[in-house]
Design a protein around this nucleic acid. Structure first.
Ligand SMILES: [Mn+2]
Ligand SMILES: [Mn+2]
Ligand SMILES: [Zn+2]
Ligand SMILES: [Zn+2]
Lengths: 164, 164
DNA sequence: ATATGAATGCAACAAATTTGCAATCCATAT
DNA sequence: ATATGGATTGCAAATTTGTTGCATTCATAT
């Protein structure tokens, strides 16, 4: 009787996605697989460097690749630093808490929005001051031009969305 | 009979907050007040520069000030660029759509999370691929040290939050 | 009008991320 | 096992976003 795995396997993950296995990719994946919270690119470089030789730029390229393949999720809070976490079956989508003072990010259990808003009043482990809801995907223009190499934003005013 | 205003007035906003009125602050506020979507610092510099002489650094300092006074909201999507919008009575908190291809941000009407998720399936103006929910505030450590000048993150492993 | 603290401009700095290109590696076919 | 060619990586340099220090200018109360 086989035990259910708690974590993904880096090598299997790459194989399933049809990606070449390299030491650097395995090390980056391992850093994310065994992390207990979302990591910055710098965190990942640091952890992967304990295992192998890897360059900062390579970390960014691997993260970009893994995000494209939806193996990894990217998220960005204030102060313009991206954080990354596994997007595998062991780590379904969930909200996050960002501390504006120390910058730590904490994964939260699934919540409805009204439950989330309740945290604004109810004291808890966190003092929630506000909530951002971000829907991410393709706008109508970009959906139509998905395969074209030119980006819709070229040639028109970038910030021309409509306030609803 | 006085008509209801659609927009805030920059001068009044500064006065109400007890902030000195300067040409630069008025120009930054006007850019945000009349924007039809959240703006990047660079967008604001560009728009304000049409009206007055203003330096890049001044834009950042004014935005920081306005955010501290909760006159303006800051938000951050992928690629670590902050966007800003008015946080006045004419623009209550609402979700946003971010196009991962062209980078445009669109303000959305208030939605429950399940309504938001419905957009994932129902084709609409946007192809929603995922939803980020960010709770922002202070963690327990930082709440206790709010007035201390040392930040909790000094001296401990920064990424030590717990995955839930 | 003058004084004083606040706000701004400028230059330099800093951190995160991207790009170009040469060197190296990995998967596949001999 | 070896050769091969495209994919992957490393390194240096550039780009982008945002910050800091300090001298100058501005706003406002006397
Ligand atoms: Mn998480
Ligand atoms: Mn908005
Ligand atoms: Zn904190
Ligand atoms: Zn788009």
């Amino acid at each position: 009787m086989r035990m259910e795995q708690k974590h993904c396997d880096a090598t299997e993950t790459l194989k399933k996605a049809g990606l070449t296995k390299t030491d650097q990719r395995v090390a980056v994946l391992d850093a994310l697989i065994y992390a207990d919270c979302p990591l910055k690119a710098g965190d990942i470089l640091q952890r992967a460097s304990r295992q192998i030789k890897i360059n900062r730029v390579t970390v960014y390229r691997i993260l970009s690749l893994l995000c494209d393949h939806k193996i990894v999720r990217e998220m960005s809070f204030e102060h313009g630093i991206s954080h990354y976490e596994m997007a595998c079956v062991h780590n379904p989508v969930h909200p996050h808490f960002y501390c504006r003072r120390c910058g730590r990010i904490t994964c939260l259990p699934p919540l409805t929005l009204s439950q989330a808003w309740d945290w604004l009043s109810q004291p808890s482990d966190f003092s929630v001051e506000r909530i951002n809801v971000q829907l991410i995907g393709l706008c109508a223009d970009c959906r139509n031009n998905e395969n074209s190499n030119s980006v819709a934003s070229e040639g028109f005013i970038k910030t021309s969305g409509g306030k609803v």
